[in-house]
Design a protein around this nucleic acid. Structure first.
Lengths: 216, 216
DNA sequence: GCAAAAGTGTTCGAGATACACCCATGA
DNA sequence: TCATGGGTGTATCTCGAACACTTTTGC
């Protein structure tokens, strides 16, 4: 072998998205005296990459069973200030309700931030977040990934709102309903929402909750 | 830190595609006494991931200036027989002509194989190749990536042939030309091909050779 | 009865699809 | 003159885009 084998530190980092307060938000964590960063950390011996991302998400934000997908691997030698770290980045989506950040088993403090230019993350993590945002927006148009943001039962208006928030534009109600129902991925529950002074809304559920399908 | 920091071996591996003999082919290399594998190998100290992939491609297949894109990072602990290796996989495309496999500076023997179920690669590399193939086929429909297979000047029939080979279906000549010309990514050179006993074909060139654009 | 969101169909235009014949050349 | 691939236009269809009013409820 012409080159010596060298060894590297690997971390898995997760851009966790949710919809809160009519905005797309991302979760950052902070340890005492440190800056805000993405949930994530070292890959362990004999640990699968996906498992590592899920473990850090659980340890640092108390979350389980989230939808997770690999994003990209970042490895520029100078991307982190001190030692070189290869980061296998993921992005994940959680429904609007499932936001109990209670279960953090370490001293990390998790907190949600609105996706805009004021995110207090370091440059290397900002780069990851930006790519995750682009990927998410792109994937809306050719998959059913948006359903991962929905709770067990939801109204079509709520689903439309999710699309509008991520795409940053308003959609036509009738066209949206036609399109989303023709996908065949959601079904009526028979129940109604009944809140506010207006007509109750039909509640829908996802047919295959964990599954993201390609469409069109 | 609750978990000790551990160190890993990282390799970059490249699925290099080209069109040869009216087929989609992939390059594998073999060292004396070993099995066929993807070009690639250890990441070096202070070496960028992309640079590592390009370096191995140059060392093992004598190629430079190819179109390269990160595919996925594979890290299951048991994916390689002996020691665990994290593989950052890439895929790359080279034009039909640029196939001088002369410049290999190591003792690897590069060879082209038709993309089918008889590829002599190990299971872990076969998994990478399969994913690269899916990605390539998907990307045909929403980008100009196919142009990376074309030489400096080419006929529309040759380009259509590339699409047909990757998609595995025949296309209508008139509709294909309308679509590909309306993209605005290629232009006529004014020259003609003049080979075979038939009418000479107009030669085209790519407007922005290195650039893969999204379409539609 | 009024405010507020739910729910519902039709028309129109653009872009994709299907399809067949003449052209230029070499042998 | 024949074989071979190069080159071209139109009719049709499908899918997405635009668009407004009625319904049900709480107050």
């Amino acid at each position: 072998m012409a080159y010596p084998i060298t060894f590297f530190t690997i971390s898995t980092d997760v851009v966790l998205f949710s919809i809160r307060n009519e905005r797309l938000e991302v979760l950052l964590v902070k340890r005492q005296g440190e800056i805000w960063k993405l949930p994530g950390g070292s890959l362990a011996v004999n640990e699968d990459l996906d498992a590592s991302a899920l473990r850090h998400l659980h340890e640092q934000a108390g979350l389980r069973g989230v939808y997770l997908e690999q994003l990209y691997t970042f490895g520029q030698p100078d991307r982190t200030p001190k030692n070189r770290i290869i980061s296998v980045a993921y992005y994940a989506l959680v429904p609007l309700q499932q936001l109990c950040l209670c279960g953090s088993s370490t001293d990390e403090k998790p907190c949600w931030f609105t996706m805009d230019n004021t995110l207090p993350a370091s440059p290397d993590h900002s780069e990851i977040i930006a790519m995750a945002h682009r990927r998410l927006a792109a994937k809306l148009s050719y998959s059913t990934i948006a359903l991962q943001f929905m709770p067990k039962r939801f109204t079509l208006s709520a689903l439309q709102s999710v699309y509008e928030i991520i795409l940053g534009e308003t959609l036509d109600k009738r066209n949206f309903r036609k399109r989303v129902l023709s996908m065949g991925c959601i079904e009526t529950t028979g129940e109604f929402s009944r809140e506010g002074n207006h007509r109750p809304a039909r509640l829908y559920r996802v047919k295959n909750p964990g599954k993201v399908e390609f469409i069109k």
